[in-house]
Design a protein around this nucleic acid. Structure first.
Length: 206
DNA sequence: CCTCTGATCTTCT
DNA sequence: GAAGATCAGAGGG
């Protein structure tokens, strides 16, 4: 029988603090920037899978034509966007990809941040097992669909609370928020249909 | 390097 | 019925 190890003890360093509710309740554009450089962790099937968030996009909610919650659309799919900041919003895109989002802002203000890319730090073998097409480490999580697969994110994760959940959370790896001059900004990807919102500078990356 | 296209399926109109 | 907050592979420069 394989030894039963506590995944949290696999690293030599002490456990990092998690991001707090106050941070998640920031507006999506601020949260999207604050998440850069922090570490997403998923304890899954006895393994610790983790990586540094390096690319995000903000979806501003009811005013944003690119947002699922534009004009207050509240459907079965978008319901979790109306939850409190720090809630996970997962949706299936193109019938294939599970997209990981973090709800931003307060309850009933349906903003969200899409996690678009991550730099793997732990559980690399597990990631390759779930992404057989990947040829090098940089292929593992270099896109929202890829990172969803690599981190074993499924729609069953929709609605969980990152502040309290045992297995899925974000560790605060930066003592201070990144200075603005370290963050790159561009329009969001794949939302050409969003008219005047298509060019809004709401994609952030390192 | 680039552009183009098929895959795949849930959700909402 | 149609449309996606995408990916990977093919083909051409």
């Amino acid at each position: 029988m394989h030894a039963r190890r506590n995944p949290a003890r696999k690293t030599a360093s002490p456990a990092l603090p998690r991001l707090t509710r106050d941070t998640y309740r920031l507006d999506a554009s601020l949260l999207a920037q604050r998440l850069l450089g922090q570490q997403l962790v998923h304890l899954h099937e006895g393994h610790r899978v983790a990586g540094i968030i390096v690319e995000t996009e903000a979806y501003l909610g009811v005013i944003d034509k690119a947002s699922h919650a534009y004009a207050g659309r509240r459907t079965r799919r978008t319901e979790t966007m109306y939850a409190d900041g720090g809630t996970v919003y997962v949706f299936l895109n193109y019938g294939i990809h599970n997209m990981l989002n973090i709800v931003a802002g307060v309850e009933d203000d349906p903003q969200a941040v899409l996690i678009r890319a991550i730099e793997p730090t732990a559980g690399i073998d597990q990631m390759y097992a779930r992404r057989p097409k990947a040829k090098r480490d940089t292929d593992l999580c270099s896109g929202p669909g890829k990172l969803g697969a690599a981190f074993a994110i499924e729609r069953s994760h929709d609605g969980i609370d990152l502040v309290r959940h045992d297995l899925l959370f974000i560790e605060q790896t930066l003592a201070e928020p990144l200075p603005a001059d370290r963050i790159q900004v561009s329009p969001r990807i794949g939302i050409a249909y969003a008219e005047e919102w298509a060019d809004a500078p709401l994609r952030y990356y390192l």
